[in-house]
Structure formats: C-alpha cells, structure tokens
Nucleic acid binder design. Structure first.
Length: 454
RNA sequence: GCCCCCAUCGUUCAGCGGCCUAGGACGCCUGCCUUUCACGCAGGUAACACGGGUUCAAAUCCCGUUGGGGGUGCCA
C-alpha cells in the first residue's frame, strides 16, 4: 500500500513556521517513500476561516517548495459529514443535546470534566440550540503506538461526550477530520503535539465509522519561542510570508526548519534537499520542543546566499535596493553586488552596504569617530590623501596606492580614517573599487569635511 | 483542578548500557588571513536538572522529585 500523508491547516491565520514545519515533515516523508501528499483545508468554522488566507497558505507552501498531489476543502464536504453524523445518530452512537454551555457549567462547575452526559437518555429532538454529541465509552483504554512518542494511553473515563455537530448544523473538526482521514485513506498522520489529546476522539470516531485499522500517528514536538511557549501568531513574529519578505531564501528556511526536531545522521546540517529526503525518517524525530532560533536561520541563509550566482544574487537583492534608494543604475549595482553578496545574511541587509555610493553616507557615530579619528597622524593622513587625490588618475589601483601609501609614508594604518570620512562607517564593502564610482569632487568634499572636523 | 507530554552546552542536533576524559552546528571569545568588515582557516568557552534504584558497568533502563510545556471550546 502506498503511503498517504496530509497537511490540514485551518485558514484562520497565515502559515507560521510551526505549520510550515509540520507540512514539510509530512511532505518530506511522502516524497521519501514515494507516497502521496494531500493538502486539506480544514475550513469548517466559517466564522474564523477566511478565503484569502487559503491563498496565503498556498503561497507560503509553494514558496517553500512543498507541492501537493491532491487538494480538498472541508467546506465542500459538509454533506458527507452530516450523513456520518446521522448514521451515528441512527445507530445510537451519538445523541442530541440541548444543554447550553451555561447549563453544563452550572452542573459540573468551572473546572469540571467537561460535559456530564446529561442528555444521553433524555431523547432530545433536533431543533434550535441542539447539538449532536458523540457517546464515548464509559470505560476502557484507548491506545496507539505513536511513531515519535511510543505507546500512548488514554483512559476512556477522562473523555467527555464531545460535540460532533454544532447547533447551527455545521460539523465540528473532530468529525470532519476523522472522517476525511478515513475516507481519503490517510496512512500517516503527522501533526503537532498540541493535538495528542484529540487523538483518542478521532480513534473512537474512526471505529464508529467501521475502521478496523488506524493510521500511524506521529506527534511532532512543538516549536517554541524564547519563553518556551508554543508559538502564537499574535505574540510571535512567525509568519512564513514575513520571512520571505525580509529576504530569506526558501531553501534556507526549509533547511533550517528540518533541523528542528530532527537531524541528519552524519551531522551535516546544511545540505541539498535531495539528501535530506534520502535521510529523513519520522521515527528519528525527537520529543522535546525546539526553539526557533533566528540567529541560526540567518547563518543558514547567509550560506545559501553566498552559494548563489552573482546574477541570481542581483535579481533577488535588487528589489530591496530599489526599495531603499529608488531605481539605481543596474550597471553600477552589478559592479557593487559581488561585494555585497559576501557580506549579507539576508537580502534586506543589502542596501546598507552601498548607502555611501548611491546616497548620502550616515553621520559617523561618536564612538566610531573617537576610535578612528582621534588616532595619531590622522590629520596628516587625510591631508596627504586629499592632496594626491586632487589630480590622481581615477582608478582603484591609484586609490589604493594613494591611501595605503599615505599610511606607509607616515607609519600608521590609513584605511580606516579615509573609510570613515567616505562612508561614515567603520566596516563595509572594500573601499578602492567602489569609491571611484563617486565623482572626484564628492570624494574630496567628504575628505575635506572630515579633515575640518578634526 | 483534571488529563497528557518533555528534560544533554545559551540554542539546536548526536548519543539508544561499556567506543563519552559526551560529539557536530549556531552563538560567544581568541588567533591567523586582510591596512575595514565579511568570508575562510586554527583554537577556545560551555551540558548529561536532582535524588534513589537496576547492573560488573547508566547521559542511556526503572521510580520519585523539581522544573518546563501542551490540552481541558458549539476553534483547529
């Protein structure tokens, strides 16, 4: 039998890195074993689901290179869910209940064990404010062998009679989810650990459906923030789309995500996707939650950026450049880009490196000024450089000779003061090649201004 | 409250009873390269939460403690 896996997001928000990793692990495994990867949009809650978010989820998934073989929307399948609910009703596996949430709370208290089974024998008829509840067993053990967690057991007495159809007639997620996995022949369910507690319900529902076998479950450890809490779309900055627009490469994101909860046997973390697919196995995923470390992501991204062809780097970084400076001369950027590519970890860092060429350089910080300009012989260096530059041949070679020569002549290091005068910063791309992109007068002006400020 | 889960360097992955004086990566620090920065290279820093067992032998197995997390919706 060929493996069938699915990613089933609810379109109630943008795809965040946790969901992306879940999708990725499902996809990786499907690709690894030559199985089928299904995308199923779980939009049973019309109040919270938004169609435009479905588009956003597609975008993020595609960006990451996660492609799907089949696609379903639960909102298209309500009829089937209602039929299932009706058949449960007919068989006595489910019953109508007209208790309001307040009624239940009044009987069992605030922190009680959920619903108390009040309507089990009351023979409530369908109508306004009436839900359908699934009759859970009063005793017994519900168990499964989780690929990641090992054997998991739940005592049936801890399970309440949960709702499968809302009072507005719309099926609840458990029902839709259980039926779809059954109907679609899903063989491996790989999802976040926050869903372990719902697994017993799903198993019960499947059995009611007549399933004799269950999929293999694998509950992934959560991705957490620095406070070690589950990532939240509201609190944490985690939308995949945001990383995309900040200038992360999908390859880097994908590669980094895969190292959260899993690692290749040979310890080589940054590697081509095909090799990851070859090595990936659900059984090797660990149980402990993992912190999403942007610093490490940045490192991965930097590695991937440096591996790019210059042309590719240019096309990818140009939008950020144009965004910062308006449209700049492509030929100029082509000359500068190789220097930038070696230094950035994200595309959105690119503009900063050429600010002194295409715009006004920033004011040096006081600290930088002190550390660089209040050194011995700095006035002499600047004077010498200004003097020689006035009539020099305008080539990088000459610039190098003049600037470095001044230092040699005076017995000090001369690049830093010139750099600070010209760029306003102590660090950045090389000086000599880029500076001849500037007009001689601009260079002299910056030099003279700095000299005057000493 | 109740149910469930987790626990190796700051972070992440490795380790699945002896190969561990615990390894890789990120971060951080040092040096080399370079008259900037970055890259690269060479080093360094730093962890088995605690307490009991089991065993000839435990980071690895068992129990407890502590700490952390998830769930507990007519959300998914």
């Amino acid at each position: 039998m060929t493996a069938r896996l699915r990613f089933s997001p609810a379109p109630t928000g943008y795809l965040h890195v946790g969901g992306a990793r879940t999708a990725l692990f499902n996809w990786l495994y499907a690709r690894r074993v030559g199985g089928t990867f299904v995308l199923r949009i779980e939009d049973t809650d019309a109040d919270r689901s938004r169609p435009e978010l479905v588009e956003a989820i597609y975008d993020s998934l595609r960006w990451l290179g996660v492609d799907w073989d089949e696609e379903y929307h639960q909102s298209d399948r309500f009829e089937a869910y209602r039929e299932v609910a009706q058949s449960f009703l007919d068989k006595g596996l489910a019953y109508y209940c007209d208790c309001s949430q307040d009624d239940v709370k009044a009987r069992v208290g605030d922190k009680g064990a959920g619903y108390d089974g009040h309507c089990r024998q009351r023979d409530v008829q369908p109508g306004e404010g009436v839900v359908v509840r699934f009759r859970t067993p009063d005793e017994g053990l519900i168990t499964w062998d989780d690929l990641i967690r090992g054997r998991v057991e739940f005592d049936a007495t801890t399970l309440e009679d949960f709702i499968i159809v809302r009072s507005n007639g719309v099926p609840m997620f458990h029902l839709a989810n259980a039926y779809d996995d059954y109907d679609m022949g899903i063989t491996h369910v790989v999802r976040g650990e926050d869903l372990v507690n719902t697994t017993p319900r799903v198993i019960l529902l499947r059995e009611a459906l007549g399933a004799t076998e269950h999929p293999i479950y694998a509950h992934l450890p959560l991705i957490v923030n620095e406070q070690r809490k589950k990532l939240s779309k509201r609190r944490d900055d985690v939308a995949v789309g945001d990383y995309r627009s900040r200038g992360y490469l999908p390859e880097a994101m994908r590669n980094y995500l895969v190292t959260l909860g899993w690692g290749p046997k040979d310890d080589i973390e940054i590697r081509p996707l095909v090799e990851i697919i070859e090595q990936f196995d659900l059984a090797d995923i660990n149980k402990a939650p993992a912190f999403f470390d942007v610093k490490k992501l940045d490192h991965f991204n930097g590695e991937y950026i440096r591996e790019l062809d210059v042309d590719e780097f240019i096309t990818q970084s140009t939008p950020y450049i144009n965004d910062a400076y308006g449209s700049i001369d492509p030929a100029l950027y082509r000359r500068l880009a190789p220097f930038v590519q070696e230094r950035v970890r994200r595309f959105d860092e690119s503009p900063r490196f050429i600010n002194w060429i295409v715009a006004t350089p920033p004011e040096p910080t006081e600290k930088d000024w002190r550390k660089v300009m209040q050194k011995d012989k700095v006035p002499e260096v600047l004077d010498l450089v200004i003097e020689q530059i006035e009539a020099a041949e305008w080539t990088p070679e000459r610039m190098s000779e003049i600037i470095l020569g001044a230092g040699e002549q005076l017995g000090v290091k001369s690049q830093l003061p010139v750099r600070l005068a010209l760029t306003g910063q102590r660090s950045g791309i090389p000086l000599f090649e880029p500076m001849v992109e500037l007009d001689r007068e601009v260079v002299l002006n910056r030099l003279r201004t700095a000299r005057a400020a000493l």
